[in-house]
Write a protein that binds this DNA or RNA. Structure first.
Length: 274
DNA sequence: CACGATGTTCAAAA
DNA sequence: CTTTTGAACATCGT
């Protein structure tokens, strides 16, 4: 379940590959490669990695000659930087091989992850990228910007936190954690939130996400960083995945419901329905 | 063995 | 246009 913090962790790790050149591609799942395996073979081989950045949950690997290798991990995708001959990783469906015996393994148990080979100019105009909303941790994103962005919206709080065109990069884990931290029921209607609710929501969102990034992500499910190490943000989870367990604050049993078709857990006492 | 759960995005409906 | 619902993806556990 790689979301903003997990993707950021991997992007940081991928900086180790700057300066490496793609030599070959192995795959048993060409469907993961868009537009096609042959396009990758034609355009990726020989390209050098110049930089790596994150946009929402997308990993953008910037290459020589203005190409971009774009990767989305979806549910279960993982990337591993390995030395050639390192012991096998599970569910590896694509392997990018570099010079100096390095390789980047794309592991994906659910096979929902995707990689795209794009010119930089096409990346910038790609509809999926263009429609993405505000980066929650952008230093220029102020509490007033946040309020302005949310005040005009209707609907359930959690649905809006997950809306990638509004805020880019929050997924199921941090939507639950942010709702808990803000003391708001995930089904609260946005139009019922006060100014101070929104201010609180903004500050808790930033605090939770910043913590998760510095903790190198939440290792729930199978998440690992690009060196195969787990993150530690899950130790600080108060809501996500804790359905049926006692609230860490008040001891009340956490409820499990569906919100916006997603599994959701929350404390009925600590989180007010507005 | 059939079905539901899982997280995310896209398509379609309201 | 905005918001909600449904489908699809592949696999695993019940």
């Amino acid at each position: 379940m790689p979301e903003l913090a997990e993707v950021q962790t991997i992007v940081s790790d991928l900086h180790h590959l700057v300066g490496y050149t793609f030599k070959s591609i192995q795959t048993d799942w060409p469907k993961a490669l868009s537009p096609s395996l042959s396009a990758f073979q034609k355009n990726l081989i020989g390209k050098k990695i110049i930089a790596v950045h994150r946009r929402a949950k997308y990993i953008a690997i910037e290459l020589s000659d203005d190409w971009i290798l774009l990767i989305h991990l979806r549910m279960s995708g993982r990337l591993f930087i390995r030395e050639k001959g390192h012991k096998a990783d599970t569910h590896v469906h694509v392997c990018f091989e570099f010079d100096r015996n390095k390789e980047l393994r794309f592991s994906d148990q659910r096979k929902f992850g995707r990689a795209w080979m794009l010119k930089k100019s096409d990346y910038k105009t790609l509809p999926e990228i263009k429609k993405l909303g505000q980066e929650p941790l952008d230093p220029n994103f102020t509490v007033d910007d946040f309020k302005a962005r949310f005040r005009s919206k209707k609907g359930k709080l959690k649905a809006k936190l997950l809306d990638q065109t509004l805020l880019a990069g929050i997924g199921n884990i941090y939507a639950d954690e942010i709702s808990f931290a803000a003391g708001l029921h995930p089904q609260s209607s946005l139009e019922n939130l006060s100014e101070s609710d929104l201010e609180n929501l903004y500050h808790e969102m930033r605090r939770i996400l910043e913590y998760a990034v510095q903790a190198r992500g939440s290792s729930v499910g199978e998440f690992m960083d690009a060196f195969g190490n787990i993150g530690s943000a899950q130790k600080m989870h108060y809501a996500y995945g804790r359905k049926g367990l006692p609230c860490k604050v008040c001891g009340t049993t956490l409820h499990g419901i569906k919100v916006a078709q997603r599994g959701t857990s929350f404390c009925p006492k600590c989180q007010e329905l507005k």
